[in-house]
Amino acid sequence: MVHGGRILIVDDHPVVRRGLRTMLEGEPWVSEVFEAATVAEAVTLAVTERVEVIAMDVTLPDGDGVDATGRILLSCPEAKVLMLTMANDEEIVVRALRAGARGYLLKDTDPDAVIDALRTVAQGGVVLGPGIGPSVLASLNRAPAELPAPFNQLTARERDILGRLALGDTNARIARHFGLSEKTIRNQLSGIFAKLGVADRVQAALLARDIGLGG
């Protein structure tokens, strides 16, 4: 039995946070529950409150829950993160697990199963929802290819976005694919263009295709 669990719920929907909080506060292994609605709040609370378990959404107003997971685990390596999201995308699952998440569940999972998953993660286990196929595990076992400069300056998320750009996707389609806002994608692309030293999406797409991204 786990005791003294300090839990952080990261979600921009108050109803989701409140519902999960109500269930968690009735669990004997939970000592305190904190809430965050943004990446910034999540990183701050995780560090200052020394939380042990985090239920993390992927799509947040100021960024990406996967990137937030990586930032939190750099400062709090003992924290256990369970991704709890509507984003049913194997690429995001792989990114989340590579970032250090201990599990990935969709929000339409039965609420009792979500609480069980958080308890399992708190005990050091790993939880993957029933929709997570063997291809995800195969992707995890493959070492990421080393990219030439300047592409090696890009984060995993930036490489993913650039790959979609190279396929000809619009900002709107890229945003839908990753469960992010178009504004977030525009900001990410500006950063990508700066790192690659290009002026626009056409130049970025051509360079990406030259090295096989989006092929």
Rank of each mutant, 00 (worst) to 15 (best):
G4I: 04
G4A: 11
R6T: 07
R6D: 04
R6H: 04
I7F: 11
I7T: 01
I7W: 09
L8G: 02
I9R: 00
V10M: 06
H13M: 00
P14D: 12
P14K: 06
V16E: 08
R17N: 10
L20G: 05
R21P: 02
T22C: 09
M23F: 11
L24V: 08
E25F: 03
E25D: 07
P28S: 14
W29C: 05
V30W: 03
S31H: 08
V33W: 02
A36D: 04
A36W: 05
T38K: 08
V39T: 07
V39G: 05
A40P: 03
E41D: 10
T44R: 15
L45G: 06
A46L: 01
A46R: 04
E49A: 14
V51F: 04
A55S: 12
A55H: 00
D57M: 11
T59M: 14
T59L: 13
L60M: 04
D64M: 07
D64I: 01
G65C: 00
G65K: 05
V66T: 14
T69Y: 04
G70K: 02
L73A: 06
C76Y: 04
E78M: 05
E78W: 13
A79M: 08
K80Y: 09
L84Q: 03
L84A: 10
L84V: 11
E90R: 15
E91H: 01
A96H: 04
L97P: 03
L97Y: 01
L97H: 00
R98Q: 10
A99I: 10
A101S: 05
R102P: 10
R102A: 14
G103Y: 03
Y104V: 00
L105E: 05
L105V: 03
K107M: 07
D108G: 11
D108T: 10
D110M: 10
I115A: 09
T120M: 13
T120L: 14
G125Y: 02
V126G: 09
P130Q: 14
G133Q: 15
A138G: 12
A138S: 13
L140V: 06
R142Q: 12
P144V: 03
P144A: 07
E146V: 15
E146I: 15
L147E: 00
A149N: 09
A149K: 10
P150E: 00
P150N: 09
P150G: 02
F151G: 03
E158L: 07
I161W: 01
L162S: 07
G163C: 04
R164L: 15
R164I: 01
D169V: 01
D169K: 15
T170G: 08
A172T: 09
I174G: 08
R176C: 08
G179S: 01
S181K: 11
E182D: 12
E182F: 01
T184M: 13
T184S: 15
R186V: 11
Q188Y: 09
G191V: 05
F193P: 04
K195R: 13
L196H: 00
R201M: 13
R201E: 12
Q203T: 11
A205S: 15
L206I: 14
L207V: 10
R209V: 11
I211L: 13
I211R: 07
G214W: 03
G215C: 11
G215R: 11
